[in-house]
Design a protein around this nucleic acid. Sequence first.
DNA 1: TACCCTGCGGAGAGAGTCTCCGGTTCGCGA
DNA 2: TCGCGAACCGGAGACTCTCTCCGCAGGGTA
Lengths: 188, 188
Amino acid sequence: MTQVRSMRADARRNYERLLKVAAEAFAEHGEGASLDDIAKRAGVGSGTLYRHFPTRQALLEAAYVDRVEGFARRADELAEELPPGEALAEWLYELCVGTIQVRGLKTLLGSAVADGSDAVLTVCGTHVRGAATRLVEAARAEGTLRADVEPIELLRLAHGVVGAAELADGGDESIRRYLSLLTEGLRA
Amino acid sequence: MTQVRSMRADARRNYERLLKVAAEAFAEHGEGASLDDIAKRAGVGSGTLYRHFPTRQALLEAAYVDRVEGFARRADELAEELPPGEALAEWLYELCVGTIQVRGLKTLLGSAVADGSDAVLTVCGTHVRGAATRLVEAARAEGTLRADVEPIELLRLAHGVVGAAELADGGDESIRRYLSLLTEGLRA
DNA sequence: TACCCTGCGGAGAGAGTCTCCGGTTCGCGA
DNA sequence: TCGCGAACCGGAGACTCTCTCCGCAGGGTA
């Protein structure tokens, strides 16, 4: 995606410094971390930061792509280890836990499944939507998942579950609880 | 709740001007509306605003209490008109729609059902939790709602549903869809 | 080695938050 | 009705953060 090779050596150095520092800063202060401060900590001017990453969103995405790719890979691992329904359930759980633990990731994943024009679909969006689609299709074929549920709907609901869990204590048990309520429904 | 009577006449005038302007500003610009701007529009200095409402949250709550009281009253109306299960479902739907339509309300209701120490429970929290409890108990007694679901859990999940719907188009149909997925569960 | 031009840095404008305190004005008691 | 003390006002100003602009350094190529 990023044409890293045609970058000048110093530019590339700065780019990678910024990425590293940004990941730390977002993890520490959440998505709202001061951008000028990130620039300072990386030893570059703010101009340099904004040249490489025009928006906060761009930096957030660049800093966390590999983590999101990790979620996508994990989906395939789980698909091999478990029956489809369980794989999907476990993946959603891990996704939610990851989202709540790594500060800043929630916004990123949120905008990755938001209803923007699909033309400008982000890398993260592609990864996470792809992974969800694979798991959903398998679970549907197996007959353990309602046939009318779209992958994107599941991702959005998972995002909602994270929101709900945050309102509780934000712990893994809250995630598990709200996810199970969603899976099993509210009827008696 | 607010000891309005013991206020000096000018203080009270300003207090109410601020409330009115704040409700407009939050509705127009969302919860992030500029506080200094609200003060200016109300014709007072920013010091006056901060004296009456020490935090953005305090102003938000004061500006929207009556709306939240409206939700609570609506719960009782619905309880009279419909069977418990339907009343609860309809109330949650209206709550979600209201939350998404009135900008700024989402944050307020979120913090009203957050896991803060219950000692500092807000007025809005009391109203909305009370209403939910009444509806939940009736639906449980009727046998249409899982017996192990707490009112607060339902409110948090509703907040999550609003989040999910926002990621879609934010329309009433999205709310309806995600709420029904939650109610009926995801199993085939 | 020398030159061009990519990429750098940080000053500074703009927007917002929140505090502080000199000045105003309300309302009570006489 | 007057006068005084307390309650309340207003907005200047310090601080934080975002984002742009442009003179200049220093990398890459011939």
